[in-house]
Computed example of a mutant assay.
Amino acid sequence: MRLCVLDLDGSVAAQPPLLARVGAGIAHGVDLRDLAPRLRLAASRSAIRTVLERLERVMAGGHGPEVIFYGSGDFHHLTAAFLQRRTRPITVIHLDNHPDWVTFPATFNCGAWVNRALENAHVAKVITIGPCSDDLAWPQLKGANLAAIASGRLEVYPWRHPPSRLVPALPRPKGLPVLGRRLYWQPVGGDAWAGFVDDFSRRIPTREVWITIDKDVLAPDEAVTNWDQGEMRLAQAMALVRAVAERHAVVGVDVCGDYSPPQLGDPWRRALAFLDRSCRPPVSRPHSALNADANAQLLRLFDDVLA
Rank of each mutant, 00 (worst) to 15 (best):
V30K: 04
D31L: 03
D34N: 15
D34T: 15
D34I: 12
A36H: 07
A36M: 07
A36V: 05
P37D: 02
R38I: 00
R38C: 07
L39K: 01
L41V: 13
S44N: 04
S44V: 03
R45M: 12
S46E: 08
A47E: 00
I48D: 01
I48N: 01
T50R: 15
T50K: 15
T50V: 14
V51S: 01
L52T: 04
L52F: 01
L52W: 02
L52A: 10
L52R: 12
E53C: 11
E53H: 14
E53V: 14
R54P: 06
E56L: 13
R57F: 03
R57Y: 05
V58Y: 00
G62F: 04
H63M: 13
G64Y: 00
G64K: 02
G64H: 00
G64L: 01
P65L: 01
P65H: 04
P65D: 01
E66P: 08
F69T: 05
F69A: 02
Y70W: 11
G71A: 03
G71Y: 00
S72G: 05
S72D: 03
S72I: 02
S72N: 02
G73Q: 05
F75H: 11
F75L: 09
H76I: 04
H77C: 04
A80Y: 01
A81W: 01
A81C: 06
L83R: 01
L83P: 03
L83G: 00
L83Q: 01
Q84I: 05
R85E: 09
R85P: 05
T87F: 07
T87V: 15
R88K: 14
P89T: 12
P89I: 13
L95Y: 12
D96A: 02
N97D: 10
N97R: 08
N97M: 05
H98N: 11
H98G: 06
H98D: 05
P99L: 02
D100K: 10
D100Q: 07
W101I: 15
V102A: 06
V102L: 06
P105S: 05
T107G: 07
T107W: 13
F108A: 07
F108L: 10
N109A: 12
C110S: 11
C110H: 11
C110M: 09
G111Q: 06
A112F: 06
N115T: 10
R116P: 09
E119A: 13
N120T: 12
A121W: 06
V123T: 08
K125F: 04
V126P: 08
I127G: 02
I127T: 07
I127K: 10
I127A: 02
P131E: 03
C132P: 13
S133T: 12
S133N: 11
D134Q: 14
D134T: 15
L136P: 11
A137V: 14
P139K: 13
Q140G: 03
Q140F: 01
Q140H: 02
L141G: 07
K142P: 14
G143L: 08
A144T: 15
N145L: 08
N145H: 11
L146T: 09
L146C: 08
A147Y: 07
A150H: 08
S151L: 05
G152P: 14
R153E: 08
E155W: 06
Y157V: 07
P158H: 05
P158Q: 05
W159D: 04
R160A: 10
R160M: 10
H161M: 08
P162H: 09
P163W: 00
P163S: 06
P163Y: 00
S164A: 15
R165S: 11
R165M: 11
